[in-house]
């Protein structure tokens, strides 16, 4: 492996991990409601921007990051309570349109509350590159990969081992039966929005030191996360992770070896190709466990 290849691979894995976190958020809400939540990207933005503000008023990361995640989770819960829940008997298409509206609203609000500038966050632990196999990796990338791995482990424990997690899975597989065993399916949807928002916020905070953040950072990251979720198969947890990593690596490789002009187009191409040729994605419904 040439050092250049290793370099692209490491960079690709880093952005891919971020896409994976966003994709997991899409899948969790999709499972609870069959709704594609187009406000997912705004949670990413809120995570990053809220951290910027909290750091600016002097809070250390140890406080600022949990608070920013909590803020995004609250916004997610409020979105479910005040926009999705009142329309719960409407069609899925209507609900999707509601999330698109919510996403525009949140972006507008962010522009007012904050500003239109790009903001950089300091890396969590310094910015001295670490050498690996002739390439280098930023400490922040190590954070991205480590936190993503920890989240994946935590989620598989939650959905595979806890009663609440299994109840959420059960609701996604058979909503009627879930109600008949006494699962409060509205609560499941509510929790899903909170959980997805928290995951999005974590992604937004982790990536901000590498790419900067701004009020509209959620548009592109939301789209990439969506492409990753579609590629892996909407609703599949493992699919979201693999889809995110594959998208990140393909993007970085094509930018490195071909031209960076097409980098963002890859996500669109993937969405189209998957929808045409592989509608259930790599790990979609055809058996296996969905998150």
């Amino acid at each position: 492996m040439s050092p250049q290849f290793v370099q692209y691979l490491l960079t690709g894995l880093t952005v891919g991990a971020i896409y994976a976190l966003v994709a997991l958020g899409f899948s969790i809400i999709f499972n609870a409601s069959h709704v594609i939540n187009f406000a997912q990207g705004e949670f990413v933005m809120i995570g990053g921007m809220a951290t910027v503000s909290l750091v600016a008023v002097g809070l250390p990361y140890l406080l600022a990051i949990p608070l920013a995640i909590a803020t995004a989770a609250l916004v997610g819960l409020a979105l479910e309570k005040f926009a999705v829940e009142p329309a719960r008997d409407a069609s899925v298409v209507t609900l999707i349109i509601i999330t698109i509206g919510a996403s525009m609203f949140l972006r507008g609000l962010a522009m007012l509350v904050w500003d239109k500038n790009l903001h950089a966050l300091k890396p969590i632990t310094g910015d001295k590159p670490i050498a690996i196999a002739g390439a280098t990796i930023l400490p922040q990338s190590v954070w991205v990969l480590g936190v993503t791995l920890a989240i994946v482990v935590a989620l598989s424990w939650f959905f595979g081992r806890t009663l609440l997690g299994k109840a959420m899975l059960a609701t996604s597989h058979n909503r009627l039966a879930a109600q008949l065993v006494g699962i409060n399916v509205r609560m499941v949807l509510f929790l899903s929005f909170g959980l997805s928002a928290a995951l999005g916020a974590i992604a937004g905070i982790l990536i901000a030191p590498i790419t900067t953040t701004s009020y509209d950072v959620g548009v592109m990251l939301g789209l990439k996360g969506f492409a990753a979720a579609i590629l892996g198969g909407l609703g599949s947890g493992i699919g979201a992770v693999i889809g995110g990593l594959v998208l990140g690596i393909v993007e970085t490789m094509s930018a490195g070896y071909l031209s960076s002009a097409y980098k963002d187009a890859i996500a669109f191409v993937i969405i189209l190709v998957v929808l045409f040729f592989l509608p259930s994605g790599l790990f979609g419904k055809r058996g296996g466990e969905r998150v």
């Binding site: 299994k166 109840a167 899975l169 059960a170 597989h173 009627l176 879930a178 006494g182």
Partner: peptide, 21 residues
């Protein structure tokens, strides 16, 4: 319910455990 409506991808044991949710 009619048509059984089991949680198909979940294990038999998980289905039972969820019955006692």
């Amino acid at each position: 319910p009619e048509g059984r409506q089991v949680f198909a991808p979940l294990s038999v044991e998980d289905n039972l455990r969820l019955g006692a949710y």
